[in-house]
Design a protein around this nucleic acid. Structure first.
Lengths: 301, 301
DNA sequence: ATACCCGTTGCAAAAAAAGCAACACTCGTT
DNA sequence: AACGAGTGTTGCTTTTTTTGCAACGGGTAT
């Protein structure tokens, strides 16, 4: 939309921290950009940026305005989406923020299924850690979020949540594979493959280990889920997963998963939702609907 | 704000129902206005107005857009208000929609008191009937509302409400003045001064009369409160009022008010609030605060 | 002290918008 | 059936606005 170009400019200047850099990104001259900024500030009656020697920085007034700008822009997206939906053809973009635990398996299948029905809808998936998801929603970087063990839920509108007890993954030949349920101290006797500290799985484990006075020895630490899964196939080390990522047909052979006693490690939860008080674009709302009904169908009970 | 002039244009065309008429109001040529409309429609990908022989009319897409436009404009007002408030000086406009019962006495005094403290704040008071108030809020014609016996509260966010039993006003020499409390059938034996049907007071009376099988004879009907008040001073007719408009020092002499038995006519309520889900400009929010605390202080208990 | 990057401004060129007049069309009236 | 008054729309010219270019003044870091 041409008429709210000034808004885009303000946003870009704020991001770049300098008029000249922003001008380069927007491919116009710094002078033109500067003049538009000055015009906005004159119309508003106050300065939006404070001028530093090295560039500019938003002041309080600017931050209030920027919040309005972001609301306004994403609300316009919603309007365009609703209007497009009137003529039968569903278009738009769905921006998803999701925990690294949820990037594989279930979610991509859901996206694919939705796109099969509505090819006009595009998707953008952003991996975010549990404490960063909410910020992504506030900044309108993402429309919807799938979070495993969220750190905050202040501005979050939960649409659905799913219980996910922690599972321990091992070779079928592993000594612990004989048991149906594991205690945490049993696992701690073996070398562990752990994700990094920002993951929800790791968070649950660390918390419990601290409470029980158990020391978890991690031999290989990675923030790539695929790596961990492929690695432990040729070792007797242990890794951890949540049910939504297990029991799939395409699971590698020779691996088994055993639940951990919930007395040792409390069950985790996947939260599905969006920014509180926001009306989602049609595509995002419908996608959320599809995913939650599928979740309820497959994992409930 | 210059950059959302196109929005203003759309709004005006919708209101005028014709491009040419809107162009005249906006004091530009029809061709220029038409081109801007076409540009907007092209950017949106769909038509916003359907073209009739006698002018244009919003289609569904246009109504969605117009709602967005109104939200957006009043949210920008809120932003400007908040920004102005940062620098200590409170500015802005407070648009009030209120029932005709409430246009006198209490409300003007409150406005005057607020303006005394913050001279930069302007006010606009619009008299609206009980069934029209909500629409004024939805259209963002008004920020806050004071309604006696509202007809709908679907999109209304109540901030405060105040019980207002109906009072019968008469000359001090009137035969009914001897009683402390009146029955409706007693009043019905005298000629009545009634406001028109859209008033909350009339609504309460009609409802009760219907239920009790009483016939109310109105000799003089007016939609001007001042007229009724000045008129009955030289007659023995009866009129009706609510407590918030009584017991003031400047009340004309020789008049008394007697409550009507609540078994005959149920108590009315004044509702104070704004559009649900909307963040008010600073001035409007503060004014609402002042009024509700004053109400609580003077009329509670 | 020098080089560098910053926001800002005067001036000319370029682009966008507005005004004017005319066209095509639909309605209600003559 | 013809007319007139209303509508939205479009080609062309004029006006206004915006942009780009170059230069200035002022901070920072080397």
């Amino acid at each position: 939309m041409r008429h709210l170009l000034p808004y885009k400019y303000v946003e870009e200047i704020a991001k770049a921290g300098s008029i000249r850099k922003a001008a380069e990104v927007l491919s116009i001259t710094p002078s033109a950009l500067n003049r538009r900024l000055l015009a906005i500030e004159e119309e508003l009656g106050v300065a939006i940026f404070e001028r530093l020697a090295v560039g500019v920085r938003l002041n309080t007034a600017g931050e209030i305005l920027l919040e309005h700008i972001r609301n306004q822009m994403s609300d316009l997206e919603r309007v365009k989406s609703q209007i497009a939906d009137l003529s039968g053809q569903r278009r738009g973009n769905v921006a998803i923020a999701c925990s690294p635990e949820l990037t594989g398996g279930f979610l991509p299948i859901q996206v694919q299924r939705y796109q099969q029905e509505f090819p006009g809808v595009t998707f953008r998936i952003n991996r975010r850690f549990r404490m960063d998801v909410e910020q992504a929603l506030i900044e309108h970087t993402s429309d919807v979020a799938f979070i495993f063990e969220p750190a905050k839920l202040a501005d979050f509108q939960t649409v659905y949540n799913l219980r996910q007890p922690l599972m321990c993954v091992m070779n079928a030949t592993h000594p612990l594979a004989k048991k149906q349920s594991l205690r945490l101290y049993e696992c701690a006797e073996f070398p562990l493959l752990l994700p990094e500290k920002s993951w929800g799985i790791r968070h649950l484990l660390e918390q419990s280990a601290l409470r029980l006075g158990i020391n978890l020895r991690s031999t290989v630490q990675s923030d790539a889920r695929e790596f961990l899964r492929d690695y432990d196939r040729q070792n007797d080390q242990l890794s951890f997963e949540i049910p939504i990522n297990l029991n799939r047909e395409n699971e590698p052979e020779g691996l088994v998963a055993r639940p951990i006693n919930p007395l040792d490690v409390p069950e985790g939860f996947i939260f599905v939702g969006h920014l509180r008080g926001r009306t989602l674009p049609v595509a995002a709302a419908r996608f959320l609907e599809q995913v939650t009904t599928e979740m309820a169908q497959h994992f409930e009970q």
